[in-house]
C-alpha cells in the first residue's frame, strides 16, 4: 500500500506544524486536551470556589454532616458523616492529584531519559547492564513494591513529607518504560545519516547526544508522559484508598477511602470523587492517544 500514501513530506511545513494540524483534527485528542486544561484550572483555582477549607470538619458542628447530594446548595455533592464536604474536598484534592501525577512523571521522565540515553549510547557492558535493570522492572510486581514503600515510608517520614513521599516513590518506579523507549529511539536515530554526518564532522559525543538525538526522542516521550500522568493518578488513588497515603492532605484517593467506610449509607462520598478521578485520568489518556496519533503519522495512514 505504499503507493497510496500521499507525499507526506511537504517542504516548508515543519514537523511540529504537521503534528499540530493532525492533533487539531483528532477529536479525542482535543477532548483530552480540554479535559486536562479544565483539570489544571480546577487544581489551581478550585480553592477559591470551595465552600470549605481543606480537610475541614466544620459541618460536624454545624448540623450539616451526612447530607445527601443536590439538596443543600451550600454542599452540592453532599457531606460525609464526619462532616467533610465532598465538593470542597474534590476541589482541594485536584491539586494533590495534579501534583502527584505531574511531578512524579517529571521525575520518571528525567531518570528514564538519562538511563535510556546511556543504555542506548553506550553499546558495551554498561549499556547491557542498564538494559537488564530496565527489563527487571517490567516483570516484577511493581504496584506491590510501591505499596510496601508507601506504607513503610508513611510510618517513618510521612509527617515531614506528605504527598511528596508518594511523588518520589512513583517517580522512582515509573521510569523504565521511558528508558526503554528512549533507548530504542536512540539506537534507531544513531544510525541515521544526519547523526553519522555530525559525528564525522567531529561533533563531540555529548553534543550529538543532546542536540540531535534528544530532540527526536521527545515525541514518543511526550506521549508516554501523558499516559504516565494518568497512571500515576490512578496509583495515588489506590495508595490512599488503602490507607498508605498522607491522611492530612486532600486527595481523591483519601476521599475514596473515607467514602468506602460509609459506603453502606452514604453512597455519594464514594461516587463523586471516583467520577473526578475518571474524568482526569480519561483526559490524560485521551491526550496521550491523540498525541500518539498526531506525532506518529505511520499509524494513521
Amino acid at each position: 500500500m505504499t503507493e497510496a500514501k500521499p507525499a507526506t513530506k511537504q517542504r516548508g511545513a515543519s514537523q511540529a506544524a504537521v503534528a499540530w494540524r493532525r492533533f487539531r483534527k483528532n477529536k479525542s485528542a482535543l477532548a483530552g486536551a480540554t479535559v486536562v486544561g479544565f483539570f489544571i484550572f480546577v487544581a489551581v483555582y478550585g480553592v477559591f470556589f470551595a465552600p470549605l477549607p481543606s480537610r475541614s470538619f466544620w459541618c460536624l458542628y454545624n448540623s450539616c454532616a451526612d447530607l445527601p447530594p443536590f439538596q443543600n446548595w451550600a454542599h452540592p455533592l453532599g457531606t460525609e458523616p464526619s462532616g467533610i464536604d465532598v465538593f470542597s474536598e474534590i476541589l482541594h484534592g485536584a491539586l494533590g492529584d495534579l501534583y502527584v501525577g505531574v511531578v512524579a512523571t517529571a521525575i520518571s521522565v528525567l531518570i528514564g531519559l538519562l538511563v535510556g540515553a546511556l543504555a542506548g549510547y553506550r553499546s558495551g557492558v554498561s549499556g547491557a547492564l542498564l538494559l537488564g535493570i530496565t527489563q527487571i522492572f517490567f516483570v516484577i510486581p511493581v504496584l506491590i513494591l510501591i505499596l510496601l514503600f508507601a506504607r513503610i515510608g508513611q510510618l517513618l517520614v510521612a509527617h515531614g513529607l506528605g504527598l511528596t513521599l508518594i511523588v518520589v516513590i512513583l517517580g522512582i518506579f515509573g521510569w523504565p518504560t521511558i528508558a526503554f523507549v528512549t533507548r530504542g529511539e536512540i539506537l534507531r536515530i544513531k544510525e541515521l545519516e544526519f547523526v553519522q554526518a555530525a559525528r564525522s564532522l567531529g561533533a563531540s559525543n555529548t553534543r550529538i547526544l543532546f542536540r540531535h538525538i534528544l530532540l527526536n526522542v521527545l515525541s514518543p516521550i511526550i506521549v508516554l508522559a501523558s499516559l504516565l500522568v494518568a497512571g500515576n493518578i490512578l496509583t495515588e488513588v489506590v495508595i490512599s484508598f488503602l490507607g498508605f497515603g498522607d491522611p492530612s492532605t486532600s486527595t481523591w484517593g483519601l476521599l475514596l477511602q473515607e467514602g468506602f467506610s460509609y459506603v453502606r449509607t452514604s453512597w455519594w462520598v464514594s461516587v463523586f470523587p471516583g467520577i473526578a478521578v475518571v474524568v482526569a485520568v480519561l483526559g490524560f489518556n485521551l491526550l496521550g492517544d491523540g498525541l500518539s496519533d498526531a506525532l506518529n503519522p505511520r499509524i494513521r495512514e
Partner: peptide, 14 residues
C-alpha cells in the same frame, strides 16, 4: 478508554 481510566476498585464499589 473509559475502562482503562477507571480505578478497578472504584468500579467494584459502584
Amino acid at each position: 478508554i473509559f475502562g482503562i481510566s477507571m480505578p478497578t476498585f472504584w468500579i467494584g464499589i459502584m
